[in-house]
Amino acid sequence: MEWNEILTAIFLALGVLISLTGSLGLLRMPDFYTRLHTAGKSDSLAQTFILGGLIFVTDNWQVAVRLLMIILLLFFTAPTATHAITKAARLDGLEPWRRG
C-alpha cells in the first residue's frame, strides 16, 4: 500500500470506530436526551474522519472539494437538526431521565 492509502485506512478505522460507538450509545443510553449525545455528535466526528480520510486517495480536485463541502455542510446542519428535534421533544413534554 502507498502511504496515502495507509493514512486513509487509519482515518477510516478511526471514523468507523467512532461511528460504531455512536450507534452503540444509541442503543445503550437510557432515554432520548442522553441518546442525542451519542447519536448526533459522534456521527459528525466520524463523518469528518471518514470523508477527510478519503481526500488522501483522490487525485481529482473536484472530488476533494465535494468531500470538504460535505464535511463543512454537516458541521452546520447536524447541530441544527439536533436542536430542532430536542426542542420538539421538549415542547411535546418528554421529560429527561435522571439517575436514581
Partner: peptide, 24 residues
Amino acid sequence: FANSITLTPGTVTIEVLEGEFLIH
C-alpha cells in the same frame, strides 16, 4: 455558540432563552 455547544458531545442546546441557554 449554541451550535458549538450542540456539536461538542456531552452537551445539547435545547432552547435559546433571553440571555441564557437551556442545556441538556
